[in-house]
Design a binder for these strands. Sequence first.
DNA 1: TCGTTGAAAGACTGATCGGTCTCCCTCGAC
DNA 2: GTCGAGGGAGACCGATCAGTCTTTCAACGA
Lengths: 196, 196
Amino acid sequence: MAATDTEGDPAALGARERILDASYHLFSRQGVQAVGIDAIITRSGVARQTLYRHFDSKQDLVLAFLERREELWTKGWLQAEVQRRASEPRERLLAIFDVFGEWFQQDDYEGCSFINVILEMPDRADPIHRAGTAYLAGIRNFLEGLARAAGIADAEAFARKWHILMKGSIIAAAEGDRAAAVRAQEMGRAVLAEQA
Amino acid sequence: MAATDTEGDPAALGARERILDASYHLFSRQGVQAVGIDAIITRSGVARQTLYRHFDSKQDLVLAFLERREELWTKGWLQAEVQRRASEPRERLLAIFDVFGEWFQQDDYEGCSFINVILEMPDRADPIHRAGTAYLAGIRNFLEGLARAAGIADAEAFARKWHILMKGSIIAAAEGDRAAAVRAQEMGRAVLAEQA
DNA sequence: TCGTTGAAAGACTGATCGGTCTCCCTCGAC
DNA sequence: GTCGAGGGAGACCGATCAGTCTTTCAACGA
């Protein structure tokens, strides 16, 4: 039972949850290096030692943030929205860019945290870098499933191509191109048209 | 006149030049936030005050680095290589991915500094962010020229699409996909095939 | 009732950050 | 000669970094 789970009162959330909420908000918008422990302490209203009771180090906290990002963004939002909007696998592949299109209109558009951490920590041996690539591979896995369901021959290669369109449009949106999703979708149709 | 220009002896380069060399090496590989002034001091072998005589602040130095990146990478390498490898505009557009293909094989592949700084400083008002988007627009301008020369109807929209393929493959390469350039080129052919 | 546990508050450490300041040396113009 | 500019070396500044430690308190179960 415990007083650690959500019980309606937002201020009464467990300490761990408040830390993760604050981390998610700050890390996803400002990046991992730019956000200090103090900012997370302040935003979560938690004591310093409480944070270090739940997480061994900042790296630990970042890894927990990425895990949550996959839950909330990849699965809870992207995949859910895609499956809600279309049922045919080919339509679902294209629907990704409809979902992106709405995402790109947000004023506080924050980009893809997995890409961000990979570029922030270019060292391939860094656990955070590795986690970022792993979660991106998870997205690719979702694409591969759709490609296979669509009867596309080399589903793995196709997923990698589709992912290039997605990542390219995400960067273009960070530059300020709000129509990036439409452009990527058009290219997607061209790529799809070539497919067996 | 002036002991400030290059005179063969590498150690006798002007102080400003040594600072810019060190900044280029460190910023392009490790990012802007991760590299401190001390690291640049040490690598350039220059006195602290000498650096601040030539550059008002770290931000100033980063802006100078980005300017140099455009000179060396965009113009001196990418555009030069593309023009060397092909003469027909359509061939030149596709040659971009041949050049990228070799780039992606490098063990110390460092990615695109313009993308990196944009994601590192998400604040649109930040001078560094703005500079990054400006240099990316410069690349797009090069693409637009090729598109126009190729007789493509909406050259601006086409350039934005092509740039999405480029940026997507750059990120995929950062993830470890060494074949990202081939995949992007294949998609480029499909996009090009649709063009008038 | 007592002991344990979780959490708040905040002092503290050593390292590093960007940036300033002082001192000294050398070289070249006059 | 002298003088000033450019540059090297390094002390120093206040702020911030990640991380540790101590004290206090409230809620809980036995």
